[in-house]
Design a protein around this nucleic acid. Structure first.
Lengths: 172, 172
DNA sequence: ACCCACATGTAATGGGTTACATGATTTA
DNA sequence: TAAATCATGTAACCCATTACATGTGGGT
């Protein structure tokens, strides 16, 4: 049971979970967990200890409702979005103030302090990071990309450009 | 006292604090806290409840050392980086694996789920977010920018471009 | 005199992580 | 039949947030 069912806003994790369920339709906590776990971002760990209590909190706040389904022997519980949940999701999704923030970026943090490295180490760091970024992006620049793929490509590409741009500015 | 003085790696907050002290020279927890609090990123809240215990943890791990300074009546404690601290900082700063990750980005998350908004709402959201991003970046594109300013400009600029690029790709 | 900046800390709370525990079904 | 996947959950731990509590020094 959520200790604070009166909270108005959704956290990023709560919002993303609610959005996932809304898109996917009735599904289990397990499905939500797996979706987070297989996400390309290291910040969506998808641990059971986060997701199962989270779904209970959402239900306590009446943003989702669940029904048990034991038709196939397995103990399943499927969650679906309520009307209040759709309204909460709308508010979360369109929160442009949060969206306009800088976010949390380990690369930016390191570049900010990169003057503490010797020059050679800094160049090596930038080079290594660029290589790993490019290696982590296996998708070819095809025309018929999926929605999520497209977003991922856009973001990764721009991050690589930002890194290069910063490196270039240093040389001036 | 840190319960786990054996941990090898530094969290982002720990690394950033250590980097700050190393750059700035001997300073108080208060100075570290203020530096975080006035940072442009919403994820560095700079709360006392985070920073004071953090400094104790770093000291327990011998990455910083402190000496009391009550010369001016005020109870001050100044921390400085140890040799072990400089080594830990080097390892943290040059961690290209962490740096190459996508980071945590409320804008990316919302765009990923933005197909759940009606088309008009999505356009409005993108427009509002762009406006807020541009408004939050008061610095003129001068030539003699400070180091941190330059990085901030680079990042903000690229995020605005990413948003525009995504919006353009949607229209196709 | 009053307020703001400097300075240190703690208590309650919330919530995410890792690791553990259990069991059914599907696939190789 | 063994392993992977589906499925649910809990316990211990770590740590950040908010809010509170306390006090000094300097400027108006």
């Amino acid at each position: 049971m959520a200790k604070n069912p009166d909270r108005k806003t959704l956290t990023e994790l709560e919002g993303a979970a609610l959005a996932f369920i809304t898109r996917r339709g009735p599904c289990t906590s397990y499905a939500v967990k797996e979706a987070f776990r297989t996400s390309p971002s290291e910040f969506w760990s998808g641990s059971a200890g986060a997701v199962y209590p989270l779904m209970k909190r959402l239900e306590a706040r009446k943003l989702v409702e669940s029904r048990a389904d034991e038709s196939d022997g397995r103990a399943r519980r499927e969650f679906s979005t309520t009307r209040a949940g759709r309204e909460a999701l709308r508010a979360w999704l369109t929160d442009s103030t949060r969206a306009a923030g800088l976010g949390f970026d380990p690369l930016r943090t390191r570049l900010f302090f990169s003057d503490l490295m010797p020059d050679a180490a800094r160049r090596r760091f930038i080079e290594e990071t660029r290589e790993k970024m490019e290696a982590a992006d296996p998708a070819p620049p095809a025309a018929d990309l999926e929605y999520g793929e497209m977003l991922h490509q856009t973001w990764t590409g721009l991050r690589i450009k930002a890194l290069k741009s910063f490196a270039a500015a240093l040389k001036k």
